[in-house]
Amino acid sequence: MTKEKIFEVIKHNLLGILPDLDPASIEPLQSMRDLGANSIDRADVVIQSMEELNLKFPLHELGAVENIQGLIDFFHTKYLGNNP
């Protein structure tokens, strides 16, 4: 699982929840909040991405994540933990 693939999954789910977002405007260094996602939207992007990536963890572990890149890195670390 590459970080590029993880970014694609997150982007796809973000666009599903915020259909008016311009796909080209989504960059890893942005936060989902800045892109217009409220707290429930953000939780659902994370949950749907977890499901697609076949990962499981409690959401509170994401506390320190500040932007999409942080989420990509977090998912990637979890993935490596599951697939050493």
């Binding site: 429930i40 659902d44 749907q48 499901e51």
Partner: peptide, 12 residues
Amino acid sequence: EHPEYIPANYAL
């Protein structure tokens, strides 16, 4: 099967 995957939006 997967309680972790219940969407937050379900609460609404």
